[in-house]
Write a protein that binds this DNA or RNA. Structure first.
Length: 262
DNA sequence: ATGCCGTGGAAACCACGA
């Protein structure tokens, strides 16, 4: 049975990060990759550099901030949407969805939400609500679906190096953790936590205070698998060493492996 | 433990991130 490897990586600037991104892609050889925080306008995406190492891409760029992309070794990427439904006034590039290798891939960059409370936190909760509504539609469609990316949520205390100092933060406040739990309860499987129920696993380490050296990390990049895909999940992990490279993003790449019959 | 660092863009500082 063939294995498919899918990864997510918040690059924090796709052009500034290009050497690191290319090095990691050649090392890890994922079949499908979700990128967040491109921080590049639509016309400045490094399409050719990625094609040169065998990755086709669709992306939704934006000047300065946000921006999401889906890469695939197979040419067959069919874009389904590039906004989350529910708010025509939302200008942030935070969602792109495509049909790739028989799987619906939703690549997302959920708002940070700080400072909380405040308008940014309200935007985060509203975005979460729209995501949850769309996720319910995807579950009902009975398709193999992955909702992948930077959720900006630590779901439990096991996902934070020092939970007591994060209780008021927009990434860990009860409203946000409840929203994540409510989403998962639709029937989604949190891949990393399901395969590693007890382990402290982080996907992000701040640039300052030697956070990576102290392993003062957060688990905020997640894979949610629809019911049809959950039994196919075989492996999940974090390429933590990439965070230690020169000119690294503050996130590390996260990946899963699925066994697909056919 | 308060953006202390890092990125991008516009104008040599500012917004934003988590």
């Amino acid at each position: 049975m063939p294995t498919i490897k899918i990864a997510t990586y918040n690059v924090n600037g796709v052009n500034g990060r290009l050497p690191v991104l290319l090095r990691w892609l050649e090392e890890a050889q994922p079949d499908i990759v979700c990128l967040q925080e491109l921080k590049a306008p639509q016309e400045k995406f490094p399409e050719q550099a990625l094609l040169d190492i065998g990755y086709h891409a669709i992306w939704h760029g934006q000047k300065s901030w946000n921006g999401v992309a889906i890469l695939s070794r197979s040419k067959d990427i069919r874009e389904l949407r590039r906004t989350l439904p529910g708010d025509d006034e939302d200008t942030h590039s935070r969602y792109i969805e495509a049909f790739v290798n028989g799987i619906v891939i939703g690549c997302l960059y959920l708002p940070n939400g700080n400072p909380a409370p405040g308008p940014k936190f309200d935007y985060k909760l509203a975005w979460f609500k729209r995501l949850t509504a769309h996720a319910a539609d995807l579950i009902e469609a009975d398709m193999p679906v992955l909702l992948v990316g930077d959720y900006n949520v630590m779901p439990t205390e096991l996902d934070v190096y020092k939970p007591e100092s994060w209780t008021e933060d927009a990434l860990f406040r009860p409203e946000v953790r409840t929203a994540f739990m409510k989403l998962v309860k639709q029937g989604w499987t949190d891949a990393i936590r399901t395969l590693h129920p007890e382990e402290r696993i982080y996907t992000f380490w701040d640039y300052f205070r030697n956070a990576y050296g102290r392993n003062a990390g957060l688990r905020i990049d997640h894979f949610l698998l629809s019911p049809e895909l959950a039994p196919k999940l075989k492996k999940a992990g974090v390429d933590k060493h990439v965070r230690g490279w020169e000119k690294s993003s503050d996130h590390a790449p996260v990946w899963i492996e699925l066994k697909i019959s056919k």
